[in-house]
C-alpha cells in the first residue's frame, strides 16, 4: 500500500490532486458526474467582492496542446459565493476547500479574505495576484515584489488560515516575487497562473479573443511551470502548490519532485471532465511503478543535496 496523503501548511490532504480555480466552478456540478470526494481538495472559482460578468466573448481560443482564455474573473461576488455556492459544495464535498480570492484593490483582497476566514470548510486561502485578463488589479499586484508583499501582509493580518499567494509567470524573476511573499508572511505559493498570449483570426485579420490577449494554459505550458516550481523551491522554504499543464499522474510526480507539495489541474478539466478523478485514481499505481511509497517524501526530490 502506498500513502498518497500530503500536507499543505499543516492542512492534510488525502491526495495531492486539486482542480485549479476557474476550471471546476464551485465543484458541485462535477459531483453530478462523479464522487468528488476522491479529490484532495478543490480550489473554487476566483471570487471578488462584487459580482463580475467578466470580459466580452469570444473568451476562448485554441492552440497546439492548450488554450487561451480571457474569461476575466466572472463570478457571482462574495455575498452569493458564501450564501449560495459554498453551501451547495458542502453538500457533496467533505474535504478541505481552497478559497481563491481576487481583487482590484488592497481593501478588496482584505475584505474577501476576512469573510472567507469565517467559513469553516475553507482551510486555505489562495490569493490570486496574477490574473492576466483584468485591468487595474489581478496581475498588476503580482508583477512586482513590493506590491505582492503588500497584499500578503494585508491579508495575513485578517486571517488565521494558511495563505497561499498565486503567482504569475509573466515576470522577469518569479523567485524575487515568491521570496517577497514569504518574507511578508505567506504560508505558501501557488504557481503558475496562465502565460499571457494571443491568437489572430486570419479571415478577419483581428485577434480571436475579444479582449485581444488571454492566458495560455494546458500541456503546452507544463515544462515552463515545472521549471518555475523547481526554481522557486530553491528560493523559498514555504510549500508550493504546483500547476500548469498537468495532465497525468506522471506529471503530478514530476511537479512534486521539482518542489510542489500538492498539484492543481486546470485546463485538462475542460477537455476531460473526469481528468482529476482519473489522475487521483492512477496515482497509487504510478507511484508503485516508480518505487514511491510515501508521496509527501518526494517533494523537492529532484534537487541536489
Amino acid at each position: 500500500m502506498v500513502d498518497t496523503s500530503v500536507s499543505l501548511a499543516g492542512v492534510r490532504l488525502d491526495n495531492p490532486v486539486i482542480p485549479a480555480s476557474g476550471t471546476f466552478g464551485f465543484g458541485y456540478e462535477f459531483a453530478e458526474i462523479y464522487d468528488i470526494n476522491c479529490l484532495g481538495s478543490i480550489s473554487i472559482k476566483g471570487t471578488t467582492r462584487e459580482p463580475r460578468f467578466g470580459n466580452p466573448t469570444p473568451r476562448i481560443a485554441e492552440c497546439a496542446s492548450g488554450l487561451l482564455n480571457s474569461v476575466g474573473l466572472q463570478n457571482p461576488g462574495i455575498d452569493r459565493v458564501i450564501a449560495e455556492e459554498l453551501p451547495k459544495l458542502r453538500k457533496c464535498f467533505k474535504k478541505p476547500i481552497i478559497a481563491n480570492i481576487s481583487g482590484f484593490s488592497l481593501d478588496e483582497y482584505v475584505e474577501c479574505c476576512e469573510r472567507m476566514d469565517k467559513e469553516e470548510q475553507v482551510e486555505i486561502l489562495e490569493v490570486n495576484i496574477s490574473c492576466p485578463n483584468v485591468h487595474g488589479g489581478g496581475m498588476s499586484f503580482g508583477t512586482c515584489p513590493e506590491s505582492a508583499a503588500e497584499v500578503t501582509r494585508a491579508v495575513k493580518a485578517v486571517t488565521k488560515k494558511p495563505v497561499f499567494i498565486k503567482l504569475t509567470p509573466n515576470v522577469t524573476d518569479i523567485c524575487a516575487v515568491a521570496r517577497a511573499c514569504e518574507d511578508a508572511g505567506a504560508d505558501g505559493i501557488s504557481m503558475i497562473n496562465t502565460l499571457l498570449g494571443m491568437r489572430l483570426d486570419l479571415r478577419r485579420r483581428k485577434p480571436l479573443l475579444a479582449n485581444v490577449t488571454g492566458g495560455l494554459s494546458g500541456p503546452a505550458v507544463f515544462p515552463v511551470a515545472l521549471r518555475m516550481v523547481y526554481q522557486v523551491y530553491e528560493a523559498v522554504s514555504i510549500p508550493i502548490i504546483g500547476m500548469g499543464g498537468v495532465s497525468s499522474a506522471e506529471n503530478v510526480l514530476e511537479m512534486m519532485l521539482a518542489g510542489a507539495s500538492a498539484v492543481q489541474i486546470g485546463a485538462m478539466n475542460l477537455v476531460e471532465p473526469y481528468a482529476c478523478r482519473d489522475i487521483a485514481k492512477q496515482l497509487p499505481a504510478v507511484m508503485e511503478k516508480y518505487g514511491i511509497t510515501d508521496l509527501k517524501s518526494i517533494t523537492g526530490g529532484a534537487h541536489n543535496g
Binding site: I60, Q74, L270
Partner: peptide
C-alpha cells in the same frame, strides 16, 4: 451559438448576459 471552451459549464467561456443574469 457561442465559441465554447469546455461545453459543460466549467470554464465560463461562453457566457451571455441575460435579464436573469449571466
Amino acid at each position: 451559438e457561442e465559441r465554447m471552451g469546455c461545453g459543460f459549464g466549467a470554464c465560463m467561456g461562453c457566457t451571455k448576459q441575460t435579464k436573469n443574469g449571466p
